[in-house]
């Protein structure tokens, strides 16, 4: 392992939501959206975080971004605990971490021009002063993401989905962040445009030495862009491995099932698909032990008793499974 601390280290991160009801708003149930997860993101890598809806991957991203307060655990950035910082410290952290969102329609303020949207960070962090200087920098950012200077005074609704996503990327790049959280950043885009944005993200990573946390449900996209991939199921990480190893040699039965259900654009390929039965259990009352055992083809009695820990089975390959781990 490196001596230097990873760019981002997450330890024991949990996020619970209380469901209240009845007399005096008593807590009647608790959702473990994120349940005791550990993650390291090394400088310059792309960590893919995959899972189905409700698995907690977006909550994890937002906790790391300090947009949601975690219930427990620590988040360290460059070796410094940033879990509870606020005020000026938090503002300074914002320059190191940025996020781009899924929905290119909801993520841009409809009443601001492109200049206002991309330039906002410059104003907040006083990275440029005066109209001229801000405008110059915004134009520079727009050109970096493949837009033109004459887009400056247009409003978001005048752009297509792909172009809006580029505006969102330019906004995030304005502070020259080190870590960029991409929350389903290409999921809402058409195939041909999705490829444009993925290529752009890869180019930007090379150009600015960016580190990505790439959150998505689409395994083929995640495998394409990531160096390492973490798979989440119902609030827990079940497997972490280098992208290639994960796809060539998945260990966790959930990862295997997930991989085999990805449609492959080749009609000649007749695969033996491992279609999971059932659906993810209710997150209000997750089954004790391994969360996946209710759908797992390999489940054993012990899976119901003890939750499997995430253990390194091969160098860099960690699995949380009693049977295959």
């Amino acid at each position: 392992m490196n001596a230097a601390p990873p760019l981002l280290a997450v330890r024991g991160l949990s996020k619970h939501y209380s469901v209240t009801g009845g007399f005096l708003a008593r807590e009647i149930a608790r959702v473990h959206a994120v349940d005791d997860i550990n993650l390291d993101i090394e400088r310059g890598e792309t960590l893919g975080l995959v899972g189905e809806s409700g698995c907690g991957k977006s909550t994890t991203g937002r906790c790391i971004m300090r947009l949601i307060e975690p219930s427990a655990g620590t988040i360290s950035f460059e070796g410094r605990d940033v879990t509870h910082i606020d005020g000026e410290d938090l503002r300074r952290l914002r320059r190191d971490m940025q996020i781009i969102f899924q929905d290119p329609f909801a993520s841009l303020n409809p009443r601001h021009t492109v200049a206002g949207i991309v330039g906002e960070a410059l104003v907040i962090h006083r990275l440029a002063t005066g109209r001229r200087q801000i405008e110059e920098r915004v134009v520079q950012l727009l050109e970096t993401v493949g837009l033109r200077s004459d887009h400056l005074n247009r409003f978001p609704h005048e752009f297509s989905g792909g172009q809006r996503q580029r505006i969102g990327i330019a906004r995030a790049l304005a502070v020259e962040p080190k870590l960029l959280v991409c929350d389903e950043a290409v999921s809402a885009l058409d195939v041909s445009v999705q490829a444009q944005v993925i290529n752009l993200l890869e180019d930007l990573q090379d150009k600015f030495a960016l580190t990505y946390l790439f959150i998505a449900h689409d395994l083929s996209v995640v495998e394409h862009i990531s160096t390492r991939v973490a798979v989440m199921y119902l609030g827990r990480i079940v497997e972490v491995a280098p992208a290639r190893a994960l796809y060539d040699n998945p260990r966790h039965p959930y990862t295997k099932a997930l991989l085999s259900t990805v449609p492959i654009p080749d009609p000649k390929l007749k695969r033996k698909r491992l279609v999971l039965t059932g659906e993810p259990p209710n997150p209000f009352n997750p089954p004790p032990g391994c969360h996946f055992r209710t759908r797992c083809p390999l489940a054993e009695p012990r899976c119901a008793e003890i939750a499997p820990a995430l253990l390194e089975t091969m160098p860099g390959h960690m699995v949380a499974c009693h049977v295959t781990g």
Binding site: R62, R91, M97, F101, S107, E120, A121, I124
Partner: peptide
């Protein structure tokens, strides 16, 4: 709940800025 508000928070916008520049006009 809109993502552009989250984006503004992620940029480090103060509460006053969120209110005056993002929430009120909309």
């Amino acid at each position: 709940e809109k993502e552009f508000i989250e984006a503004a928070r992620a940029l480090g916008a103060s509460r006053a800025r969120l209110m005056l520049r993002h929430l009120l006009p909309n």
